[in-house]
Design a protein around this nucleic acid. Structure first.
Lengths: 192, 192, 192, 192
DNA sequence: GATGAATGAGACTTCATTCAT
DNA sequence: TATGAATGAAGTCTCATTCAT
């Protein structure tokens, strides 16, 4: 984190403030003035870094998405077996969602509401490609059930969003044991 | 549906307008004036039926939730076997989500954003009780995996929201065959 | 003026306030809030009567333009001789500019700056047609010099704007005698 | 033009940028930042040469006014006859307005809106003195009609602004023949 | 009950000006 | 001299809510 210019520090503060406030209040209930205040800058300063509110949200979304997929695929290798590869990716995604809660909740909200531009959303989807490729391979090998990527995603990755949200609301506490249970459920749902 | 008083007709129109507009624009991007216009009443009239915007949303949420659970449990009987009971409930939920798209999307948006009061949300959760009871029974009988209700919900019901949203965005078309596939995946994920 | 509804009274107040403030400060230095205050309404009320600031200016422009041309041509008859007709119109225009100073200054400012939409400006120009027709007749009869309508306008009507502005700044006081002098100059400049 | 210091070059660039932008957008719709960008300097730099925006406009106005009058009176000699002197000055003014369109439009806008300080405007008026003196002489000699300088100006010089503006908007194309026609009209309007 | 004109707080955004470098 | 990031007051406009009719 060292070596950041003042500009980078300010921009980071704006990004973090946006994530935090949108998580707690939603997009439209988060005024630019509050974002500025939380970031410790003047309202006008936001417009030095972002064109407008929509641009701010889009850019934050894409940056968080990149961080997310970088984390998700960090120790994954295409030469791994399908089962092993899936486990690695799934657990890293779970890890991200439980450790980087703010970022993960932000992505979840973006993906479940009409607050992101069509264009930015499409850009964000591309990043999952390695997982989709893995599933294709698994289906070819007869290890994974037939079905669209959407179906596989809905039953393996998407449930994590629900668990994460529940934990945020202090409705549950997710332990390592539960993670393991969830992983088994994810795998059971798609394995042949 | 006959025999509704004028008041009931107006209130219904307001509820439907709210659902439709919030679905397409989100809570904060839906002005009361637009709701009134779509319902064919004056803005002031809304306040005869609801205290304010938040109250309107909360009430609509609860009413849709009730309609949803009524539909979900309509042909369910506690004397059914766990597997059969689960299938009946799951398929009725899937049916609701694909047939009553507007209502289902509305619930999904409410459950994934901070637009509903804590209190109303808690109220809405209670309605699922028969399904939770069924799961308890299944776990006691050793048919269903151990794990919290949240976990079971995340892997059986929650994925439907994702599929429904994808269909709304015209990303996929959900056929009866895919419903059956999804059901199998849901059951596989929680069965022991 | 009797029989105006409350709405009409309010709208009139807004129009008058706009004219007065734009005259003294210019378009961009006249905030909507000041217009509202001078009209005795809340800022939001303006938007019940006009779409936005540009629409407000355009509409005021067109309305004043209509009042102006109505005044200009009120006692004019196409059967009058060219000389007589010109005198009638010219003097009525001069009369308007000296009596309805606020309106006249407003038109002058609109016609000399880029504050009015192309479209509204074109709409406003049409209203002078009877004068242009008169000039055409005069040229056919060999009474008026050859030359475009622009040239004739520049030397007969446009000078009045200068005199009016000078009077507004208290640089001169325009007497009936001076009006007569000005009329002679106008006629001399275009007569053959 | 050679031998300008860097400072003078920058200041000139600022003046030219101001003229161009104010012509096309008006005073209040021309941000200092745009002026700086067009002049190739930093916004802060403007404040090394001018006190503030109002001062910038005032100074530009006065400088353009001086250039204008220098041009207007360049070949004029007080010993010329009234008719000849008027022709020389008028045609030089017309020449300036058609050749130095940017400068001329800028003066026109300044003279027709409340964007220039009272004081600067008064300063600018003084420069026409030789023309006013010529008119006084013409009236004494009985060649020119009685009437205030304002009246004479309104009917000889002011019309040129209208023709120039119309040409800028591509409504007319001013030929040498039309200039001659306009000159005749100007002279006819004031000659006895 | 019903209306809808009116309100005014507050949202997003711009821009003249400053000041540390 | 020169920069340009930063400021924050002020502008346009929206919209939840009220109240006289």
């Amino acid at each position: 984190m060292e070596g950041l210019t003042k500009s980078e520090i300010k921009r980071n503060a704006l990004v973090q403030a946006t994530i935090h406030l949108v998580n707690n209040n939603g997009f439209h209930a988060t005024p630019m003035s509050k974002i500025a205040k939380m970031a410790g800058v003047s309202p006008g300063t936001i417009y030095l870094y972002f064109e407008n509110k929509q641009d701010l949200i889009n850019k934050v979304y894409l940056e968080v998405k990149v961080a997310f997929t970088n984390y998700a695929f960090q120790n994954y290798d295409e030469k791994m077996s399908v089962k092993r590869g899936f486990e690695v990716i799934w657990k890293q995604i779970a890890d991200f969602k439980l450790k980087e809660v703010e970022e993960a909740r932000f992505l979840s909200q973006c993906d479940n509401t009409p607050m992101i531009d069509e264009e930015s959303r499409n850009e964000g989807i591309k990043h999952l490609q390695p997982l989709l490729d893995l599933w294709d391979r698994g289906q070819k090998e007869g290890i994974i059930k037939k079905g669209s990527h959407y179906l596989l995603y809905a039953y393996t990755i998407y449930p994590l969003a629900f668990l994460m949200n529940a934990q945020c609301k202090n409705e549950i506490k997710i332990t390592q044991e539960q993670i393991q249970n969830a992983y088994v459920m994810a795998w059971d749902s798609i394995k042949k």
